[in-house]
Nucleic acid binder design. Structure first.
Length: 491
RNA sequence: GCCCCCAUCGUCUAGAGGCCUAGGACGCCACCCUUUCAAGGUGGAGAUCACCGGUUCGAAUCCGGUUGGGGGCACCA
């Protein structure tokens, strides 16, 4: 039985708190969010925390916080980490829904669609090894399906605790995938799989089906890695008499070698990107285009723009490589689109507390066109909070010399610059005017003339615009650093 | 091993039979601008649309096969 087309759309995301929010989970969540928003449906967050040992609270917090950071919100589910569940189908954490799973498992057992399996891990493994040796598919051999009551009693006497296995009907399963179209699998090729462990803990394939029904999910949009699990779910849905939702399997995000994106080969935690100073706007825009495009040549899209344009049927079938260069580019675009006030606010976590808000606001214009990540500001602005001694220690005197100039020549130029600056009005414009005039009367190209100044003041060859930097640093420190450089040049 | 999915520049993609001498973007190269670095501007290299057969007057677009890649086959999710 399928769900009537006029049924209001309900979608969900179902992260498992086994680690920080993963790029792939974020993208799947985003697509579900965009789909729900686009069609005016309801978006549910369900935490799949069955069989997750300890420490799930920290991961749940990371997942929820970062989802919020991206701007993804949901209508039902835990609204905040450790927070209360909102919605008519609470609780939304699977660890709190065990009664329902137990009840549905009993139904399956009673109807003969599931049976107790007393095989031990070792026995199962031995069978798998045997099958592997014979080049057979690694699937359950059905031993416990044929047990007599006496066999069962003997196992129980041994202290074995049975798992519950679903008896997979050997039939062809077809479904119309939202993204891939008609897909067919032969469940006769499948082995009976465990739905409840010996210790009573229900397993993923089972609980996902129970909860999607309970939460009236109409459209299951998930990663392509679940495509071949879908026939299992459909078999379960039928055995339980549930309504069958529509399924849509979105392409995987890939490592540069085109394997499924993994922690081993790529940076997969959203929080890591956040910490490096990627903007959520850039992240969302980038993620959305990994497997979808509006069909035009536009490429800068806000979350709202995306929701307005996103069609689930336009999602691609092929996997997409995560291209960090492109993310960097987009991040730069979004940083440059920020006004100075906003930029200063976002820069705050990346700069020393010693820098006042007022200084930060004056710094923002100097940085806003030269940041790929917000964290780049740390190095660019370091000269402001480093001591004069630290700055001096950053460079060898040779670094002060423009190409082809001697120490004596450079010292003379620097001294001329010093004299011009000390008399100038202490702001960017005044300093620049004085600096340029001095360069000209000294007969040096501006670039060469400014080099020793830049190195003296910032300790580096690369810095924000020189005169604005001096203005921010202040006259006293700027002059002290120039004098230090002059001293090193003559010794 | 079995099953399933996929296939346009290095990468993300436009393209739903003639508009394609295959467009855009990132990256790369060159030049311009320029106080460094960026940003910006201009131009360039870069794809026999994986391959082979069909269908058609005509195919990147439809069909079949091949190859290649990926995913799945747990008392993980």
């Amino acid at each position: 039985m399928t769900i009537p087309p006029e049924t209001p759309i309900r979608v969900r995301m179902a992260p498992s708190p086994t680690g920080p929010l993963h790029i792939g989970t974020a993208r799947t969540s985003l697509y579900n969010f965009l789909f729900a928003r686009h069609v005016g449906g309801t978006y549910v967050l369900r935490v799949e925390d069955t069989d997750v040992a300890r420490g799930t609270d920290a991961w749940e917090r990371d997942i929820i916080d970062n989802l919020h950071w991206l701007g993804i919100t949901w209508d039902e589910g835990p609204q905040a980490a450790g927070g209360e569940d909102i919605g008519p189908h609470a609780p939304y954490r699977q660890s709190q829904r065990m009664e329902r799973y137990a009840r549905e498992a009993d139904r399956l057992l009673a109807s003969g669609n599931a049976y107790h399996c007393y095989c031990t891990h070792d026995e199962l493994e031995a069978v798998r090894h045997e099958q592997e040796r014979n080049h057979q598919a690694p699937r359950y051999n059905g031993r416990c399906l044929r047990l007599t009551d006496a066999d069962r009693a003997a196992f129980v006497a041994e202290g074995r605790r049975p798992a519950l296995r679903f008896r997979v009907p050997p039939e062809k399963i077809r479904f119309d995938d939202l993204i891939r179209g008609e897909v067919e699998f032969d469940n006769a090729l499948l082995g009976d799989f465990v739905i409840v462990r010996g210790d009573g803990m229900p397993l993923y394939h089972f609980v996902v089906v129970v909860d999607d029904e309970a939460m009236e999910i109409t459209h299951v949009v998930r990663g392509e890695d679940h495509l071949s699990n879908t026939p299992k779910h459909i078999a379960l849905i039928r055995a339980l008499g549930y309504r069958e939702p529509r399924f849509g399997h979105i392409p995987l995000i890939l490592n540069p070698d085109r394997s499924k994106m993994s922690k081993r080969k790529s940076q997969t935690a959203i929080t890591a990107y956040r910490e490096q100073g990627y903007l959520p706007e850039a992240m969302v825009n980038f993620l959305a285009f990994l497997g979808w495009s509006p069909g035009t040549e536009e490429e800068i899209f806000s979350l709202g723009d995306l929701a307005a344009r996103f069609e689930i049927g336009d999602v691609h079938k092929a996997g997409a490589v995560f291209d960090k260069d492109r993310l960097d580019y987009l991040n730069g675009v979004y940083i440059r689109s920020l006004n100075y006030q906003e930029l200063a606010a976002r820069l705050r976590p990346f700069l020393p507390e010693a820098l006042s808000d007022e200084q930060l606001l004056r710094l923002a214009p100097l940085l806003h066109e030269r940041l790929v990540r917000l964290s780049d500001a740390t190095e660019l602005a370091a000269f402001l909070t480093e001591t004069d001694e630290q700055v001096a220690a950053l460079y060898e005197p040779e670094l002060l010399l423009p190409k082809g100039r001697s120490a004596a020549e450079t010292a003379a130029a620097l001294a001329a610059a010093r004299d011009a600056l000390i008399a100038a009005e202490w702001n960017g414009e005044g300093l620049e005017a004085a600096g340029r005039a001095a360069a000209e009367s000294h007969g040096w190209k501006a670039g060469d003339f400014f080099r020793p100044l830049r190195v003296a003041v910032t300790g580096r060859l690369v810095s924000p615009p020189l005169f604005g930097s001096m203005e921010l640093l202040g006259k006293e420190q700027t002059m002290a650093r120039i004098d230090t450089a002059l001293g090193r040049l003559s010794s």
